[in-house]
């Protein structure tokens, strides 16, 4: 094989172009992780305080900490409820608004509004909607006679998690929907036409055309969406602070509380590292199971390179 300078220079350029992003990610993500691992082996209480190395003590403490184990369980439920539920709902909404209808352009733009406002706005909006005495949901339900006494959406430990899942989905479903919609738009119209001519019904069209075309997007969103959901902090913090009691205390909330209100950053770091390891295992398994889709999502020069 002879060398080819054109392709080589292209490869070099490709590497150079991605390097800045890689360096930034290393700087603000990988270095903090390393630093977090270091802190987790110490007895540091607040940033800058004196400390000594304690080895695995923080980790061992956490494994015996019922609160931590419970928060892991709550995080798992939260991730399944949010990651899975949001992906499915978004896909359904995207399919629903993909076919033309009056007002489609309006919907495609303004559906994104809940995603685009700060979490603080979301928190105000829904705390106001959920309010027990003057919230519109409770007052109108009681007015209609559906409820006898107000439902404590955020103050009742039994339903606070559901309320938060709803609000979090209200925030992220629009964005995921739009990405699915963009992906649906790239399915060639002829494929549907051919299927219709062949007499394929709605379900068969979805199964044999829509779904395979969506699969790379679904895979990337499945991974990134799950990771986003697992790390949700601001909306929980602003709406319930993990309460009532500890009913909505997921791992990020517990660790934030431990670090900045319990003044124990090394224990919080250890908790973070455990959580991180679990997510990495999830990500590796997920990527391994779906590796074909990920490679597909990266292929451009299908016909030129081989």
């Amino acid at each position: 094989m002879t060398q080819n300078d054109f392709r080589n220079s292209e490869a070099r350029l490709g590497l150079y172009l991605i390097l800045p992003a890689v360096v930034l990610v290393i700087l603000v993500v990988i270095l903090p992780i390393i630093s977090g691992i270091q802190i987790s082996f110490t007895s540091q209480r607040v940033v800058g305080s004196e400390f000594e190395t304690v080895g695995l003590k923080n980790y061992l403490d956490l494994f015996g900490d019922k609160n931590f184990i419970a928060s892991l369980g709550r995080s798992a439920v939260w991730v399944i409820a949010n990651g899975l539920f949001q992906t499915i709902i978004s896909l359904l909404i995207a399919l629903l608004i993909n076919q033309p209808f009056r007002g489609q352009n309006f919907v495609r733009t303004w559906i994104l509004l809940p995603w685009a406002v700060p979490a603080a706005v979301t928190a105000i909006l829904w705390r106001w909607m959920f309010d027990a005495t003057s919230g519109i949901i409770n007052t109108s339900m009681m007015g209609l006679g559906v409820l006898e006494k107000p439902l404590l959406f955020l103050a009742n430990p039994e339903i606070a998690g559901i309320s938060l899942t709803f609000v979090n989905s209200w925030r992220y479903v629009p964005f995921l929907t739009i990405i699915f919609l963009a992906s649906l738009a790239s399915v060639p119209e002829e494929e549907y036409e051919a299927a219709k001519v062949d007499g394929a019904g709605m379900w068969l069209q979805f199964k044999s055309i829509t779904f395979p075309n969506l699969l790379p997007t679904l895979t990337v969103l499945g991974l990134v969406g799950t990771l986003w959901a697992s790390n949700v902090f601001d909306i929980i913090w602003m709406m319930t602070r993990g309460g009532p009691g500890v009913s909505t205390t997921t791992v990020p909330v517990l660790m934030y509380d431990t670090a900045f209100y319990g003044y124990n950053i090394s224990k919080a770091s250890a908790g973070a590292i455990i959580f991180l390891l679990l997510l990495i295992i999830f990500a590796i398994v997920f990527i391994f199971l779906n590796r074909k889709q990920f490679i597909l999502a990266n292929e451009t020069f299908k016909d030129l390179s081989k």
């Binding site: 094989m1 002879t2 060398q3 080819n4 054109f6 392709r7």
Partner: peptide, 8 residues
Amino acid sequence: AGLESISD
């Protein structure tokens, strides 16, 4: 054109 490398 030089858009494809020459194997031989």
